[in-house]
Computed example of a mutant assay.
Amino acid sequence: MHNRILPSGERRAADAEMARVLRTAPIRIASEPFGGAIAHWKHGALHDVVEPMTDHVVMTYPTGTQRLERRSGRLVALGTARTGVVTIIPAGSSARWDIPGAVDVIQLYLPHRTLERVAVEADMAGVGDLLERTAHPDLITSRLLTSAVEAMDGSAALDALFRQQMTDLLATRVLAAHAGTPARFQPTLGGLSPTALRRAVERLRSDAEADVSLAALASDAGLSRFHFCRAFKESTGLSPHAWLRQHRIEQAMNMLRNTDEYIVSIAAALGYSSQTAFAAAFRKMTGETPRDWRRRMR
């Protein structure tokens, strides 16, 4: 089926259309300045038509099972929402959905321009139409989408960098597994030059207010986002997000060990939204709360 890219006046924002159809608000939604978002919903039974949307919607189901029925003209697709499957609604497509009960779902709203950018950066010939999928087995995409929601650290800079990396990774996966003409990506050979690596590390080590977006890091290195992420990991063994998360926790350890700063002050200095968010991120990395770790070190 051809994915119709409609004039802007005939399309709805994906999150707004989902809110209308699902008759509820998302539990959580995080968007990017240049388009796209990730949202986590829990909704009840659905019997309605989803109108054409601006972005492609890629979704998975972290918990539970539920029957899905999707009708487009005379075509009927049946499936079961469960862990490890994905559903894709291409931009510009429309269908009637009948879902008899409650659903736990994570949705990625993926702008077509993001797919085009990733395709160009990866030296692909072009972007083929995305395939409509209804509860299609794809454990890789399902796990990526689930981690995109679960791995938020409560730090604006860290969370934004993670979403940027995850969106590009998901776009790569969608092009490879869910396009009419599957994409083939050439492996990246070699890491960053010593100068480019030094610049990236300097930016990541800057204060909590510095611009550590993927676009800024890639621009410093003179590379596309696609190639920068792969080259950075080749050089360091970590993604930019994982490197920055580890660096922030190391900074926290030094402050906990060598100063008498309140934990809430350390959290704020490192850019965390709350002491609770900082404590959760610290425990995820170390297995201990900041308070227990400080007590043990002293």
Rank of each mutant, 00 (worst) to 15 (best):
A156Q: 10
I88S: 12
W293N: 08
P290V: 07
M18W: 14
N254K: 15
L145W: 13
R67A: 09
D48Q: 10
R199C: 05
A30G: 04
A125D: 15
P7R: 09
T259K: 09
G190R: 04
T289P: 13
Q164D: 09
R248Q: 14
A242Q: 12
A135Y: 06
L68W: 15
R28T: 15
G84L: 05
I27W: 06
H2M: 07
K284F: 15
T146M: 09
L214F: 01
I106S: 13
M124T: 04
S193I: 00
A277L: 06
L46M: 13
S94P: 01
V86T: 14
R230G: 00
T195Q: 08
N3H: 11
V120R: 15
D15F: 05
D220W: 09
C229T: 10
D48G: 05
N254H: 15
L108Q: 09
G92F: 05
A221Y: 03
G64K: 02
M124C: 10
L189T: 08
R283P: 06
L214C: 01
A119D: 03
R143M: 10
A125C: 05
V212G: 02
R291F: 11
A160H: 06
A216K: 10
G190A: 03
T24S: 11
T259E: 11
T114R: 12
Q165A: 07
A102S: 12
W97T: 03
R230C: 00
M53D: 02
P90K: 01
P52F: 04
T286F: 14
R225D: 03
Q66H: 13
F228E: 02
A91H: 10
D220Q: 15
L161Y: 01
Y109K: 02
F226C: 01
A221E: 03
F278G: 02
L139W: 02
V103Q: 12
A77G: 01
R294P: 08
G92I: 04
Y61G: 04
R198H: 04
G190P: 02
A30S: 12
T276C: 06
S224F: 01
E250N: 10
D98V: 10
H43A: 15
R248Y: 05
A37F: 15
K42D: 08
Q164R: 10
R248V: 02
G79A: 08
I249E: 11
R173Q: 14
V103D: 09
A37P: 01
G222R: 07
S31A: 14
G36Y: 05
L115N: 06
L130Y: 06
V57Q: 10
I263P: 00
T259P: 07
Y61K: 06
A231K: 14
G101R: 15
D138H: 14
L217Y: 07
V86L: 15
L223D: 04
R257P: 00
V58K: 14
R245N: 06
P100Y: 11
L244M: 13
A156H: 09
H40I: 11
L68I: 15
F226E: 04
G271Y: 03
V58W: 13
W293K: 08
E116P: 07
S72P: 00
A81Q: 05
P111E: 11
S273F: 00
A157F: 02
R295A: 12
P52S: 05
A122Y: 05
A119V: 04
V85Y: 08
D260E: 15
A277H: 13
A81V: 06
V264C: 01
D55S: 11
